[in-house]
Amino acid sequence: MTAELSISGPKTHWEVLDPLELALRIRLRAVRMVAPQGFGYLGQALSAAEQVAAVFARATPGLDRLVCSPGHYIIAPFAAATELGLLDEQIVSTYGQNGSPIEAIGTERSPIVDYTCGSLGQGLSAATGFVMSDRLRGSDARTYALVSDGEMEEGQLWEAAVFAAHHRLARLTVLLDANNSQVDGPVDSITTIEPIADKWAAFGWHVQDLDGHDIDAVSAALSAADAETERPSVLVCRTSTVHGLDCLPPDADGHFIKLPPDLATAAVEELTGKLEASRA
């Protein structure tokens, strides 16, 4: 989380021309990052691609902050940053390898984001800290926090949610990746976290419940969050860990996808084709 390499670093700049295309490129890049190992956190990128693409399209470079609460999702910001020229392709190609600075689960060394942590449920608290600091300093920055639905099982998330609403941290936007997936299986088979939207609303948040793979819907919801001046906002993004990659077998484990060489080749072909089609 080196400041000069984070999206809020004063020298950081990028431009997103087409968020839909960026989401496709995030998927393709993530496949290429995971392929050398044959397994990895590809499902997180497939699930969050549109959210991450929309945030990069919306955020003010060199000012706004990005928190990636579940460190396992760091592949998605890394993939986006690579496609936007913020990260060196050679370095990113070492993702998850021994000695690589680009670790598979986000750490303090992880570039691009302002905060990430492999111990789950902590990112929203960090995000509230950033927003409190920006308020104390009179900064107009916005903090985007990518949070996963499984993290709603951690008590700390609700501590942070109470705090943020009490302090009216309207410069905080949470993208809640509601993919109904955690290590042991579907979230709803382990704990009932629904009604998600009602819970956040009851805590005093501005809530939008939407299709997290509809890039226009995510972008519009981010705009609506920007317009909110009294409450922190949460986008409950309904997603899937296997979205946008049809070649995956139906029983793929979304938390930790296996990608043997033949499947990796098929995935690259499929996504390259979709990318070409989107440009046509």
Partner: peptide, 14 residues
């Protein structure tokens, strides 16, 4: 828990 994580973020900001 929230207080400690928040304190860390505040310290990151100076």
């Amino acid at each position: 828990a929230n207080m400690m994580s928040m304190a860390g973020a505040l310290a990151r900001c100076g």
